[in-house]
Design a protein around this nucleic acid. Structure first.
Lengths: 243, 243
DNA sequence: TAAATAGTGTCTTTTAGACAATATGGT
DNA sequence: ACCATATTGTCTAAAAGACACTATTTA
């Protein structure tokens, strides 16, 4: 036992300076999902700083230790800066870190995804001036060469969303305030990449009790469709069987 | 667009010094699970440094940017230091970060869990001198007041293990080279906290094809039991229905 | 033969898949 | 009446739950 450890904790802390150590850079990156014209889209931003200046990338950036109290705060802040949205469904996917992913040095990023209702969006004006953003279909987005390892991060987030769509009610987070069962089913189909049986789908979500039926109907030229609202914690509901 | 961004990337990087910024501390913490005497245990270490000197904690520590090429390397290194084990089943659980969790400042930790076969263990001697370690039953471990927010981290890892045990073959990672179906079932029961039906359990794992039957039998006083071996990627197998 | 543990048979229940049938609203 | 879409009925299939039964080994 060295002399070092015999000091009091207070004494130890008073002499501790994080700038004395080599530590990794820490960021948060976000995959922001929304449904646009019946297709799954993600938000990309064009980098307006080095490194990878000018390349498309996932929205994200350093944890700001003065501004963010928690890691989720960083994610919420990034999301708000790009979309003006404050209360999305937010889920941490994975943390990736190594020596090579950022030319500035050993870096790690905590990857999140957010599900938002596209009709809620008001692209933040103040930020619109600083950073160019675009919504891309995930087919196009995964073809693009994104900055850093963001292409891989995007794939991880898509894989998580698809996987959880098989056994949870996650995609509910993409729906507007009121929606029909047919609309919800079509979102599940878009994410999963294949069609679902109508009766099975309705039975599944209705029996689960994750939706609140309303008295309202959507008139769309043909037969009216009943409108539903999301119940509490619906996104995290786990079905007993996977699709 | 500032003058700043007009520099070349090489020029930018040459002037970049991570010590100029306030960035969070980054560590990896591990929940190392093993079955000992038919109970789920975790490995704890007593801290031999400030802060929280002398308190019990999860094994873990800073990412060493010189030694670790990736985040998983840090986890493997920590695991090897405490157990001498090189190839466990390793899974990242979650990353937790905020201003308060460490008195040295804004810190984040990437939480992993490892599943190991207790009979594989050779506590690393060199390290045994530096740090006191103990295996505790999860009932006892969750009662203890661990350093930092490690009690909460422990609960998160246990929750993840329990949850995945309901719909995957994860606990296979805790088994020795050869084992009987009754032994495997008992591990599932210990983790889930309730009994399972023998026929259903056997049907489930055998139909899944995650086990390789051997020609060997275990003689244990009563009727011999057939021994099985783990198949490839068995831990990640997902059953179509949850228990 | 009895006790204990390993392993099987089989009926029920739950929930998804398939697909036909009915209901409603607009033209 | 006809079409398109919403909604329901119902049979089948897959996989878990319940529980009784048979098989093997040793004392």
């Amino acid at each position: 036992m060295t002399n070092e450890v015999l000091k009091s904790e207070a004494e130890f802390l008073s002499q501790y300076n994080i700038h004395d150590y080599d530590i990794p850079l820490a960021c948060v990156d976000m995959v922001i999902f929304a449904i646009i014209q019946h297709k799954l889209h993600v938000l990309l931003t064009r980098r307006n700083e080095h490194p990878s200046f000018g390349q498309w990338a996932l929205p994200g950036g350093f944890i700001d230790v003065n501004q963010d109290k928690t890691l989720d705060d960083t994610a919420h802040r990034k999301l708000f800066e790009k979309t003006g949205i404050r209360s999305p469904y937010l889920e941490q996917v994975q943390t990736v870190g190594d020596v090579h992913r950022d030319p500035r040095g050993w870096s790690l990023t905590v990857l999140y995804f957010a599900l938002i209702d596209y009709s809620d969006i008001m692209i933040n004006q103040a930020n619109g001036a600083k950073a160019e953003v675009q919504w891309l279909d995930i087919g196009e987005a995964t073809q693009l060469q994104l900055a850093f390892d963001h292409s891989q991060l995007l794939l991880k987030a898509i894989a998580r969303l698809k996987s959880k769509t098989r056994y949870t009610a996650l995609p509910i987070g993409l729906m507007p305030e009121l929606f029909t069962l047919t609309e919800l089913q079509s979102i599940f189909e878009v994410i999963l990449g294949h069609e679902l049986d109508k009766k099975s789908f309705r039975r599944r979500v209705l029996d689960a009790g994750v939706l609140q039926p309303t008295e309202c109907y959507k008139r769309s030229g043909k037969r009216d469709a009943q409108l539903y609202r999301v119940g509490d914690m619906a996104e995290n509901f786990e079905f007993p069987r996977a699709l």
